[in-house]
Structures are given as C-alpha cells and as structure tokens.
Design a protein around this nucleic acid. Structure first.
Lengths: 330, 330
DNA sequence: TTGTAAGCGTTATCAA
DNA sequence: TTGATAACGCTTACAA
C-alpha cells in the first residue's frame, strides 16, 4: 500500500502538503497542487480510511443487524440501506444473526462497537438486544414496534391491515380469514392483525384467524396453510401477514382444488419481488421500502451529528392489485 | 469510548500490561490478570478494532461485491458468505453495484481498497472490473467463468445442464426448449446451455432455444416467456437457466392454458428458496451454495495468508425433483 | 514480570 | 504558502 509519506517523498513536499491537496483544505499553490496530484496518480495512491477514521474518531460505518438475508424482504431492505448509505458517504457492515446461531445479540453489539460503527440500524425482532445497547451509540429501529427508547421507522401497518380487509370485502368475500404470524405485540404484523379485525367487526362480517404460533415455534407455514383450509373449508378470502405466507396458501389452494381468484381471493403483505412472481400474481400491500430506508439512514446520520430526532416515523402503504383478487363476472 | 489508557489508569498499571492481558501474550502474574480484568469489566472496555487493524496492517475485512441482493440467489450467497467469514474471524463489507448505478466498477474497487479490505470476493458479472484490480490484493471470483487470472469458485454448470436435459428426456418430452440468458460465454449459464444442447443432440432429439438477449438488453423475462410458447407452441418441456426465469414460464403457461406438469414439464436452475415456493413447486438443479461459499472464503483467506491456491474449484450439483416434472400415468 | 517508547497512516495545530 | 510535530488507540521491541 502506498502511503502519504511516499507520495510526499515523490513530490518532494511534506506530508502536510499532500494531506492538504487530498482534502482541498488550507492554502495551496497551484504548482504544488499539480506536483502532488501527479505523484498521487503515478503511485496510484488511496488514503487509508482506517487511519482517517482513527483520527477523526468516526468510521463512517453503519452497522446493520438483520435476522436473515436470503429472503426478498430483508434482501431488499439491505439493498436499499446500502444504496442510501453509500450515497451519503457511509459504508455498511452487515451482520446476520441467523447465519450464526451461536452468537447472542450481545455479541453482535460488541462486534459492532469494537469496529467503531458510528451507529446501528436494527432490523431484528429480538427485544433482548435493546437493553444491551450502549446507549451512547445512535440506533434506529427498523419496522419493529414501540421501542419506547429507540427512534423507530416503520410503515403504517394499521393502514395496511385495513386496506387488505377492505379489499376482501370489496371482492365480496363472505368468509374472510387472516393467516400468519403475529403472536408478539411488538411485531409489526400485530397491528395488521388488529386493524383487520376492526374492519371486519365494523362491517359486521364474521372472520377466521389462524396464527402460525399454533404451528410450533418454528413457524411451519405449510402446516399453517393446511390448517386454514381445514378449519375454514368454505373460506373465500385470505389475508396473509406476508407474501411469504401467501406462497403457502397459494400452493395449498392448488392442492385442494381451489382456484384463485375464482374460488378464493388472496391478499399478501410486503409486495416485494415475490408478489409478482407467484402464480397467480399476488395482490399485496406495498411497504415503501425505499422511503423507509431513506428515513432510517437519515435519522441515524442526524443522531450521529448530534441532532434530536422524532421518536416515530410512520410511512404510508398502498395496495397493489393483481390477479389474486380479480373479480369474476358471474 | 473507553480506551486502553483509561483501563491502565484504573488498574494502576501500564498500557502494555493491559495489552498483554487482552491478547494473552507474554508473561503476566495472575494478580495483574485479575486487576486488569476487573478494570476492563468495570469500564465495559472493548478494544478499538480500527487501531488494531492499522497497526496489524490487516483489517480482517472482506469486501464482497454483488450486482444486486434483493434476489434469492445473491441473498443466499451473501448470507452464507457472512456466516463463513464470521466463523473465521472476518467481517464483511458489502457493496451492491445495482444499488448505485452512478458508480463504476473502478469506484467499488477503490472504496474497498481504501477501506483496507484484506481481500475481495467478486460475484459480479462484469469483466471490466478485472483489469482494474490492484493485483496485490487477494481476490476470488464467485460463480463466474474462466477468469484466467483469478481463482474461481463455481458449481459444475455443465453437469447441471446435463442433468436438466436428461430430466426432460426422462419425462418423455418430445419438444424440449431451453429458455433464459446465456449470451455471454463468460457467464455460468453458457455452460448450462452447451451441455443441454450436447445431451439433446446425442439423444437425437430436436430442441428449441429462446435467448433473453433477443428481448432487449434489459432481459425482459415476461417477453421471453411469451416468445417461448409463441415460437414453440407444441413444447412439452422447458429448461430455464434460472429459477427466476422459471417463474415467468410458469405464469405464462397458466395464462395460455397449459397445465404443469401435465402438458409441460419445467426444470429450473439454482434451487434456492424460490423453487419450492412456486406453484407448482419447481424441479431444479441445486447449486451447493454453502459449500461454494465456504470454498470461496477459504480460498481467499489462504491467499491472504500468502498461500498459493488452485485456479479453479468446481463443486457438483444435484437435481431436486418436485411437482413440475411429475410424470402422469396416462 | 512489568514499563517505556516507537510507530501504524492520517490530520490539526502552530510556527516559519 | 508550506512544514514539523503531536495525536488518534493500539501492539511490540527493548529496557529495567
């Protein structure tokens, strides 16, 4: 690695001058500028960010903690976070708790702090981590709920639940069922659930519920899907807490000879790349992931710069209609 | 942030002693060990990895370059790379070229080198980057082909193409078609393509080909899928270069009233989480991603440690049969 | 067995 | 307008 010293020697100047050229700071004659620039180019010099970070007491590094990543939802989240962070001059160091079951939440925080991250974006469902956090470090909680102590970015899950419920009503469903995982009130899905129930109740429409928690701790969605149609054989509309859950519902419907959308309408949640790939393409509530990630990074950077930031940032969702809720003229 | 000095002051010893305790190096009395350990705990001390890296001239950081990540394939690749790297004491810094179209391949390499990564894992399809690499930095190329200069890890794409072709023959297909993207001989899909053709030719079976390159540079898979059934209306078996392409084939089949697997068999490639989620579940050639990622990290670390490593590492694939190639008794 | 001091590659302060 | 020098937090010869 070429260092600033070698550049200085080559250009016949002091390291200070090189540093000035590098950072466009202070007074510099254009002659120096030339000479130093030349030397930097010849040696293919790139300043050592480690050394800079050490001095600056800031690494421009954001730690991102996700449970898994080989999943369209978190995949897109990470993708967007990288995009926004990069654009703002920050790098992302990524940890994936699911990749490494031996480590505790505490271990991750330790690793991130040891690596001098300037802040952390938490996409983790665990609450255990919250107490462990060294609160001198800025943190943003992403699409998790009501962490009294942490600034949170989420989509409007209540609105999403309402949109989904109304979509099933609009399709004329008489036996709507909600299926998925919402056993923890701290999960965003919990709001989708309460909103769904509220809309159905207000409409005087009886509804069914199948919660994945009933299917063993390791949410067994295949079992969940079977349960939906066993328990509610006459159901004609299913709202799934995620597009992922919807894939199982679509498969189980096919297996039990139900046609979608003729016999059963299905609405998902997330509207990531998966939704339009399914067969039939899935109507889904779209989370504004780009905007959510922009907000998360922005909130974090503002904290890093010492600003106060709002406790809750909630962004609106929209319904994207596809084949799975097409109404058939009868 | 607590520094080593504060720990030293608190314990009433020199920083050297603290450093020794920290690294379990050199001679140390158990009394010191006690005292220092105590102080570290009280101050919740964690050594600054930035400073360590600077001194050690090695950051224990691996740069990973992927085109996109919100996609089951690269999502799983990144997930596995993180798992393996973490287990071996390395961190991952992730760049995603698709997140940031304004940057060139050169920019990424610059950023990674500036951040003092110890090595780079390239999952990028671009070849342009190869010449730009500072070849003092260890690099591994992941599932890309024949980079004469770079150690490469890939799955046995030729074997995969053969397995897929034979599966269609086994199902009794008389009008097999291969569909997808393989216009660049440097892409792994190109080997799948030549292998497919070889098997079909050897079996004396005429076959069709639809290449996504024909559908505009921005591979329009929806258009590709339409083309498959327009050009080969009587096709009864399609091999797709990826599971992603297969999703479009499945949708288009449904739209044109073809039943799968009764009328048309479909075989994909990758066998990531998507394959089993589709409707119907997709028969696919499974890439051993865990093993490939282990090999990639291992090869990189061995290079970092100054070892010579083999030029090519090729891992075997397997066929996973699912509903999309079920044979119906007729 | 412990401590002093130099140095990793930068930037900031101050003097020239 | 430029250059010495100290400092960031850590490890490691070398000295004590």
């Amino acid at each position: 690695m070429t260092t600033i010293k070698e550049v200085a020697r080559r250009a016949g100047v002091s390291v200070t001058t090189v540093s000035r050229v590098l950072n466009h700071r202070g007074y510099i004659s254009s002659e120096m500028y030339q000479k130093v620039g030349q030397a930097m180019k010849e040696l293919n010099y790139r300043p050592n960010e480690l050394a800079r970070s050490l001095l600056r007491q800031s690494s421009r590094l954001i730690g991102v903690l996700v449970p898994i990543i080989d999943n369209p939802f978190f995949g897109e989240v990470v993708s967007q976070l990288i995009r926004v962070a990069t654009a703002r001059g920050y790098k992302i160091i990524l940890y994936c708790s699911g990749s490494d079951p031996s480590s505790s939440a505490q271990d991750y925080v330790n690793m991130l702090e040891a690596n001098q991250v300037d802040g952390i974006i938490l996409c983790l469902n665990t609450r255990e981590i919250d107490e462990k956090l060294d609160r001198r470090l800025p943190v943003v909680s992403f699409e998790r709920y009501r962490l009294e102590t942490l600034p949170t970015v989420s989509c409007d899950n209540r609105q999403g639940g309402e949109l989904a419920a109304r979509e099933l009503l609009r399709c004329g469903c008489r036996h709507p069922v909600m299926a998925g995982l919402w056993d923890d009130p701290w999960m965003p899905a919990y709001e989708r659930y309460t909103a769904f129930c509220d809309v159905m109740r207000a409409a005087g429409m009886p509804y069914g519920l199948v919660e994945a928690g009933e299917c063993g701790r390791q949410a067994d969605y295949a079992r969940l899907a079977r349960l939906v149609f066993e328990r509610y054989p006459q159901t004609d509309g299913v709202f799934c807490t995620s597009d992922h859950v919807a894939t199982y519902i679509l498969q189980q419907a096919a297996r039990t000879g139900r046609r979608i959308p003729q016999d059963v309408k299905v609405v998902g949640f997330n509207d990531n790349s998966l939704a339009s790939m399914l067969n039939p393409p899935l109507t889904s509530v779209r989370q504004p992931l780009e905007k959510m990630c922009e907000a998360a990074v922005d909130l974090l950077i503002r904290q890093i710069q010492g600003e106060e930031v709002p406790q809750e940032t909630v962004l609106p969702v929209t319904l994207h209609r596809r084949e799975s809720t097409r109404i058939f003229p009868e």
